[in-house]
Structures are given as structure tokens and as C-alpha cells.
Design a protein around this nucleic acid. Structure first.
Length: 420
RNA sequence: GGAGAGAUGGUUGAGCGGUCGAAGGCACACGCUUGGAAAGCGUGCGUACGUGAAAGCGUACCGGGGGUUCGAAUCCCCCUCUCUCCGCCA
């Protein structure tokens, strides 16, 4: 969330900065409620100061066995007034909180201005779209034929958007995330294996709640949520903490399964591994000092890109425009891998700098030279495993229906081809 | 799931309804001392909001929420979490 006071005191500036954002939010309401809260606080704090002082006097009188009934009566009246004001505060505060939580992050000035996906800007490209001297097939057909992707059984035992990976398919899945974790830990990210379920507070912390509750799966008998991304448990590890500035940046990588209801995606990407209710992902999460965050975003994006480079998969990096960046993000790069069956680039990672937006919401600070300040948080997929597997199968497919194993994965797979 | 115990600052650990934002120890920071260190001594050491140029001052916070009271870390109620024992389980 943004700083409430900043919104109230720089209302026009905030509105201008958010002008190119999509969504509904009401900074005016934030300012109005904040100003009212301030008025009440001013009034009630003076009253409380009086009460505290006089109550002390009552204590002294009582100790001296003097009569204090008059003072007690006065304080009782004051107490009622305080109670009334406190009650008004108690109604304003949740409203204010809700209002400020609904205001999205301010895009960084370097973010391209635009309304939608088509206004995103390609930043760089690695390699060229794969060419074939035969008619390439989509990964779900290749996978089914090789007996490594079984959508039908997934549907039988769970439902639509669930898949069973078998044999070398299951091994490919495992190889890919092991390869990712090894690569990232060698690059200095600390490996985390978090819970796949989290409590409600954690979902609020990273912003999945309250706005996007329908996108998440929840567990009926205890109120937990299945994590939609490792960002949720890993970022929340530091919720409410003040860390020593010298430990920054803190860089984590985590493999988890991810669970998404995919509400509102009916009919989209119904075949293959692109859009599942459960998928594997390796996530990169970082906490750093404010002055470093834009550089760190570049590095984090490079770390994610490195996986595709090592796998020799063609990709491009896109800077999302103001209308397309996520709600909490100040700046986002998407990494898109070439997917022959789609005949276009498909998102495989989204790397975002949230600045202090998440940190303020989660109250994560660092201390340096005796002062505390909010950290900056960043995260990015490094990468989505299912989509990587799909991209490997499609880009490495051979004329005979087999799939060549990328050089970087041969040692993990223990073979050079799937289906030979 | 059953029974019991507990939750206080970075940590440990006191705290009779009143001068308690909270003793003491440890850790940490600075200074003195020293050739240098250790020890010793001294000083400092929570967060947020508000106000102020600053020092400071005000308010709130002792797991979370509610209540009693002129006044709550302390009393009452609800919730959450942790620990011990039992059961079950990987």
C-alpha cells in the first residue's frame, strides 16, 4: 500500500501518477478519511493526556486518604467523551484501510505509458524463433504420443486443468526445477522450501486478499489457502520484522507447487500445460535497500533469463506498460518464451519491483545507522516449470516424434532423448 | 483429538489495579581504562502516529480482540499460537 499521509498531502500528484493505471480506486476517499482521523486524534489525545494526569492525582489523593469522588466523577464524564471519539475512530479506521489498500502502486517513471498488453515494449531478444523442416506439433500431442503427459487421467482423478506426468515426463519436470534451483543457488540465492498452505494474514500481506479471493483455493476445515505462488510464503517470512541493513539484499529461491483457481479463464489454453490449477514454479524473492532496487530488478530478471539461455530456448524480455503492470508493482519485466504451437512468445516469468508498497503493507523494515525504513521487495519466476517443460518439448521436438534433451539437462535426465 | 502449562522489549526474565514503556541479567553501541585486548567502570539502547528547527513533549502498544474501572501488563470473557504428556500418523 501507499503511504496514507503521502496520499492525503499530495493528492493531485498521486492522481496524476496513477492516471495511466487501470482499475477502480479512490484516493479522494483516502484523503478525506485520513483528515477526519487526524482531527479526531488531535482532540482525543488531549483528552487522554488529561485523563492520564488526573488519574495519577487521584492515586495520590487516595494514598493520602483524601476524598476524590469529585475527581472520579469528572473523569468518568471525560471517559465517556473519549469513548465516543474512540468509537468513531474505530469505524473510520477499517474504512481508511480498505480505501488505501485499493489504491495501486505508482508506476515508476521509467515504465512505458500505455493502456494494455499491446502497448508493452520489447526490450531484448535471445535467439530467434525455432524453425523446423517438418510440421511441428503442440506439446500436448507430442507428450501424449510419448506417454509422458496424460491429461485424460488428470481429468479422471482430479478434474479439468490437472495433468498426470509419467515416466520421463515426470522426470523432466523434476529435472527442470532441480536445474533451476541449482543454478540460482550457485548464483547466490538461498534455497527455501516453504509450506504450500498459508494463513489469511499472509494472503493479505502479499495482496492476494482481499481483492482476489476468488482466484485462490482455500481449505475448508481450517481456513488455510493453497499458495498461488511461492511469493506468498517466502515474502511473508519477514512480515512485521526489522532486519539489519547489513544483511541486505536477502535473496531467496524456492520451488513450490502453485495452485490457482483460474477463475475467469474459462476456455483459455484448455489444452496442454500452459494453464493448470496446479503447476510447479521456482520463484525468486528479494529484499533490498531502496537505492538498490531498480538495479536488483535488472539482476533478478537476468537470473531468470539465464535459465532460458542455458536451456537454449528463444525468448524475449518485455517491459510492461502502465496499464498492464500488476496492482502492487512499480515496474515489471515479463520474460516470454517462444512457443511454436502458439506461434508466438508466451509468458514464462514476470519480474517485478514493488518498491516499498508490499513492505509497507507487511511492515518489513531495515535498520541502518539507528534509523529504520521500509525495505524494497522484488520477485520473479525463475521460472514456471510447466511452461518450461512445454517449451522444451515443443522447441526440441524431432521429426520422428522424439524430444531431444537440452544439453544442460542431460545429466539430470540421464538420457539424451525422450522417445528413442 | 484429550489433559495441563504458558505468551512481557534483540534475547532471558521480574512485575502488589495507581508515579510501569515496563526492574535485573545477557547481547549490542559509544566512552573511560590499556602498549593492545579481556575484565572493570560509565552512558546509551523498542515501535508507530502526532507536534517541534532541535532537545523534547503528547498518544498508543506487554500474543490478538472485547469488557470492568477515574485508572489495566496486572481483573473478567473470547480467539490465536507455543510448550509438556497421552492418542493417532509419515
Amino acid at each position: 500500500m501507499l503511504d496514507v499521509r503521502y496520499i492525503a498531502e499530495n493528492l493531485e500528484e498521486v492522481k496524476t501518477a496513477l492516471a495511466n493505471r487501470s482499475g477502480v480506486y479512490d484516493p479522494d476517499k483516502v484523503a478525506r478519511l485520513y483528515n477526519r482521523k487526524r482531527e479526531i486524534l488531535k482532540e482525543v489525545e488531549v483528552m487522554k493526556a488529561t485523563r492520564n494526569k488526573e488519574s495519577e492525582q487521584i492515586a495520590i489523593k487516595k494514598k493520602q486518604k483524601l476524598d476524590a469522588t469529585e475527581d472520579i466523577k469528572r473523569m468518568k464524564e471525560l471517559g465517556d467523551k473519549i469513548k465516543n471519539l474512540d468509537e468513531e475512530l474505530a469505524t473510520i479506521e477499517p474504512e481508511l484501510k480498505e480505501a488505501v489498500l485499493s489504491v495501486p502502486n505508482i508506476p515508476h517513471p521509467s515504465v512505458p505509458v500505455g493502456k494494455e498488453e499491446t502497448d508493452n515494449v520489447e526490450i531484448r531478444k535471445f535467439s530467434q524463433p525455432t524453425t523446423f523442416d517438418f510440421e511441428p506439433k503442440p506439446h500436448w500431442e507430442i507428450g501424449e504420443k510419448l506417454g509422458i503427459i496424460d491429461a485424460a487421467t488428470g481429468g479422471k482423478i482430479a478434474g479439468a486443468r490437472f495433468t498426470v506426468m509419467k515416466g520421463l515426463g515426470a522426470r523432466l519436470e523434476r529435472s527442470v526445477y532441480n536445474f533451476m534451483l541449482n543454478t540460482h543457488t550457485e548464483a547466490g540465492y538461498e534455497e527455501i522450501f516453504p509450506p504450500f498452505m498459508v494463513n489469511r494474514e499472509s494472503m493479505y500481506g502479499t495482496g492476494q486478499l482481499p481483492k482476489f479471493e476468488e482466484d485462490a483455493f482455500s481449505v475448508k476445515n481450517n481456513g488455510f489457502f493453497l499458495i498461488p505462488t511461492a511469493e506468498v510464503p517466502v515474502t511473508n517470512m519477514l512480515r512485521g520484522d526489522i532486519v539489519d541493513g547489513e544483511t541486505l539484499p536477502l535473496k531467496y529461491c524456492a520451488y513450490t507447487a502453485c495452485f490457482r483457481a483460474e477463475a475467469g479463464s474459462a476456455g483459455r489454453d484448455t489444452r496442454g500445460l500452459i494453464r493448470q490449477h496446479q503447476f510447479n514454479k521456482v520463484e525468486l524473492v528479494e529484499f533490498c535497500k531502496p537505492e538498490d532496487s531498480l538495479d536488483e530488478l535488472e539482476k533478478l530478471t537476468a537470473s531468470a533469463e539465464n535459465i532460458l539461455k542455458l536451456l537454449k530456448l528463444p525468448y524475449r524480455v518485455v517491459a510492461l506498460c502502465t496499464g498492464d503492470i500488476g496492482f502492487s508493482s512499480a515496474k515489471t519485466f515479463d520474460i516470454e518464451v517462444w512457443m511454436p504451437s502458439y506461434n508466438r512468445y508466451v509468458e514464462i516469468s514476470s519480474c517485478s519491483d514493488f518498491m516499498d508498497y508490499q513492505a509497507r503493507r507487511m511492515n518489513i523494515k531495515y535498520r541502518e545507522n539507528g534509523k529504520t525504513a521500509f525495505v524494497h521487495t522484488l520477485n520473479g519466476s525463475g521460472l514456471a516449470v510447466g511452461r518450461t517443460v512445454a517449451a522444451i518439448i515443443e522447441n526440441y521436438q524431432q521429426a520422428d516424434g522424439s524430444v531431444k534433451v537440452p544439453d544442460a539437462l542431460v545429466e539430470y535426465m540421464g538420457c539424451e532423448y525422450i522417445g528413442k
